[in-house]
Design a protein around this nucleic acid. Structure first.
Length: 403
DNA sequence: TCTGGGGTCCTAGGACCC
DNA sequence: TCTGGGGTCCTAGGACCC
């Protein structure tokens, strides 16, 4: 049976949500109506565009470019800071409204949801439901969304990306040749900056060109990715809406340093702060890590990462930090200026999946108790209430957001 | 005042075993 | 003496998404 899928995408999410909040606070201007962006913090060397207003878009400003470049294109550009807490609240309001239509909702990102409406149409058409959601979000929440209406996730997502803002678009199978095939390949999901030039060299410029290209040729050239792009170009996508909560497969934390660091002792201090946050989240999910990974980015944007499998899955801050520190020493060449340091844990398993070793591990149990006490304090008084980072040199301190 | 941070999935090559 | 291939696990790095 055919699936009935909606994709709901908030228009300029961070910027719209910020605009609404500012108006609510009594600000007398709607920043959606002027050239404006939400941007990172340039003093922390993270000055990039995270969201833009339609007027900013007219100047050619794109998400991801530097604020410096954006201001070159539009000197009067207004830049507003991130407010993650507000975004989470706004996203939650949208989710609660969508729950009135179905509980089969996949939260694809903070501002995008897929709805599986197959058994929730209640005598209406899918398009009617899409139009109703679009209208209700605007009236009740004050921001606009695009809704994509289709029979699979890919086509619903492609549809919601058509003309913006505040639109409902269908993309049914019979509409693929007229609505999707004329588009440039850069519009197709999963085709990014590395693949597009390769396709251009093969004289493939539109999604239609790709759809009509020999499937075997694409597989030969791009492997699995080749098969996927051919299927996507032909509107084929069998994936299901993942509405059940899924635990993460990996957890990471990384930071661009306020200035380049050349001393391993200072890198170690930052690494400890990152590790504490990662292991805290790991324990909150009741997960254990099998692999520890450390990433470095040099001043010249060269990335390096080393990883190692642990002898036994763990969530212990002490054990994981010891491993991370070791990896850092293994890969860091003394004197190299480091711009970014990150760590992550992978191959996560549920805590109760742990094969309890025949011989009880006393050391492990003791560490577990220490971590538990620390976690409870953080839970009660806020993440920053207790930290080994007290050891940090003040000039080196990283401000962490409460989780 | 140049370039974030959090993820997922895939590939290639080496080690090791049969 | 010399020469083999398949399967699995592990690590490094890349591509892509929002």
């Amino acid at each position: 049976m055919q699936k009935q899928i909606l994709h709901v995408d908030v228009n300029n999410a961070f910027l719209s949500w910020t605009a609404i909040e500012m108006l609510k606070q009594g600000y007398n201007k709607d920043i959606r109506e002027v050239p404006s962006v939400i941007g990172g913090d340039e003093s922390k060397r993270s000055g990039i565009v995270l969201a833009k207003s339609p007027k900013a878009k007219i100047f050619g400003i794109t998400t991801g470019e530097t604020l410096y470049q954006a201001r070159m294109k539009c000197p009067n550009l207004e830049v507003y800071p991130m407010n993650y807490k507000l975004y989470k609240q706004s996203s939650e309001k949208l989710y609660q409204l969508l729950l009135q239509y179905t509980d089969k909702i996949e939260r694809f990102s903070i501002d995008e949801c897929f709805l599986d409406m197959t058994n929730s149409l209640m005598g209406k058409t899918l398009l009617e439901k899409g139009i109703e959601i679009n209208k209700r979000v605007k009236e009740e929440l004050g921001f606009t969304v695009n809704v994509g209406v289709a029979h699979n996730k890919l086509l619903a997502k492609m549809a919601s990306d058509f003309k913006k803002p505040d639109r409902v678009h269908t993309l049914f199978e019979e509409e693929i040749p007229t609505k999707m095939w004329p588009l440039p390949i850069s519009e197709l999901l999963m085709l990014g900056r590395k693949t597009i030039p390769k396709l251009y060299n093969m004289r493939i410029k539109t999604i239609g060109d790709l759809a009509k290209t020999d499937k075997q040729l694409l597989i030969k050239k791009f492997g699995k990715h080749g098969l996927m792009m051919w299927e996507y170009a032909n509107g084929i996508d069998k994936s299901e809406v993942q509405y059940k909560f899924e635990k993460p497969k990996g957890i990471g934390n990384s930071t661009t340093l306020p200035e380049d660091i050349r001393e391993i002792e200072k890198l170690e201090e930052v690494l400890l702060v990152l590790t504490e946050q990662v292991t805290y989240r790991l324990r909150k999910y009741a997960l254990l890590a099998n692999v520890v990974n450390v990433q470095l980015r040099t001043k010249d944007f060269e990335d390096k990462s080393h990883q190692r499998k642990l002898p036994e899955a763990t969530s212990s801050t002490k054990i994981i930090y010891a491993e991370a520190k070791d990896l850092l020493h293994e890969m860091y060449k003394q004197g190299t200026p480091i711009r970014l340091i990150g760590m992550r844990v992978d191959n996560l398993i549920e805590k109760d999946e742990l094969q309890l070793s025949l011989f009880g591990n006393e050391n492990n149990e003791k560490q577990e108790k220490i971590d538990k006490v620390v976690d409870e304090l953080k839970q009660k008084y806020g993440y920053n209430s207790i930290t080994r980072a007290g050891k940090l040199h003040s000039e080196n301190k990283i401000k962490l957001k409460d989780i």
